[in-house]
Write a protein that binds this DNA or RNA. Sequence first.
RNA 1: GUGGCGUUAGCUCAGUCGGUAGAGCAUUGGGUUGUGGUCCCAAGGGUCAUCGGUUCGAAUCCGAUACGCCACCCCA
Length: 423
Amino acid sequence: MKALQAVRGMNDVLPQDAALWEFFEDSVRDWLRAYGYRNIRMPLVEPTALFVRSIGEATDIVEKEMYTFQDSLNNESLTLRPEGTASCVRAAIEHSLLHQGAQRLWYGGAMFRHERPQKGRYRQFHQIGVEAFGLPGPDIDAEHLIMTARLWRLLGLSGIRLELNSLADSAARAAHRQRLIAFFEQHRDQLDGDAQRRLHSNPLRILDSKNPHMQPLIEAAPQLNEHMDDAARAHFHGVCATLDRAGVAYSINPRLVRGLDYYNYTVFEWVTDALGAQGTVCAGGRYDGLFEQLGGKPAPGCGFAMGVERLVALLQVQASPASQHAAEAQQPDVYVLHQGDAAAMEAARAAEELRDAQLRVVLHCGGGSFKSQMKRADASGARFAVILGEEELVRKEVSVKPLRAQGVQTSVPLKEAIELIRG
RNA sequence: GUGGCGUUAGCUCAGUCGGUAGAGCAUUGGGUUGUGGUCCCAAGGGUCAUCGGUUCGAAUCCGAUACGCCACCCCA
């Protein structure tokens, strides 16, 4: 029979790599608690309309990357979530979370986009999302950036740069958009195919084009900040000033445009050069119109998402001391081996007693020679082997052998062995 | 979705001009009736990605497909 394989772009994370994932997830959980963010969990599947209305009809995600299917049992169009913000806002509206005041929330999990797979870009990928609802000021934007800078330190990562921009408010964006369309229409002959297609659907994205032939035209295009009002300017200034005061470095990138339509005011990306073409490890910004767009009462929103695969890849490349220490901490304290039927049963009981003493214990199963059991013990990474054979059984003791450090094997009652191992 | 490169043992890779496959590491066993990590010996492990074509004969040449990598595009 032909062996089946995983769906393209959807990966197994094997135990050796999963240890790093666990280190990442544990660090993230502690970090979010330190800032008072609470976990929220949304479904993986949502009505298709949720993403069309939030992300935007003309975006690549909605146009060609969504896993959309018809649930024929009740004739609904459903979609595997391509991102988390829309679901999170939907949940906040549906359960009236803002009635309890502003919300700091986070979620994590799988997202799905049908793109051609590449390193750092998969069809099933994982994000940690952080959202703050009901807070209009620049303080919360700055908090998100300051806390993210801390996370990189906690993970032991370096070389992640912050790029920052303001998209102003919707009125300014609309005015800017009209002028952009008019400007690019005058120079239609200089636009490449992609830009022509986006001219009316999403002209802001043309500014982000990397086509070198279009750079002079883009340089000459109308600037958004010509339309920015005092409130937008003050907000952006507030974010920058708070970052300056907190000592978080950034560079302002006027070309920075997000791929999702719902952003306004602050947008940002954390980028690295260490991962090739998919260098954005974390990105987000403000989306004050989204609640209204999804049928809720108007409320400000601000948030970001991290790509877990990308950050884990960075942890792998940079092999930080923090992550190495975490990998070592996963290894068992004790490997219990035994010889003979009576000893096997006593070993199972003794292993439980060791675990009662908060030790991490692997009990040898599957038989095998003494030598092969010792090899297993060594390969497990355990600090000690605890040996139970005929001799130990008679003496009502166990032999304790240090496997990592210097030291001699000793035969003692189990209670003493526990003291010895716990040091 | 477009283009380029690739796919041989669990892993990393060699394989000459087309003549039916090899190494290192890993695994298992032994050297030691109860002692790992070093050393020595041995063994197991292959639909040469898949399907088709050319040929007396294909891992090798050609085509398609699947999967991977890189870039574009896009994004976390």
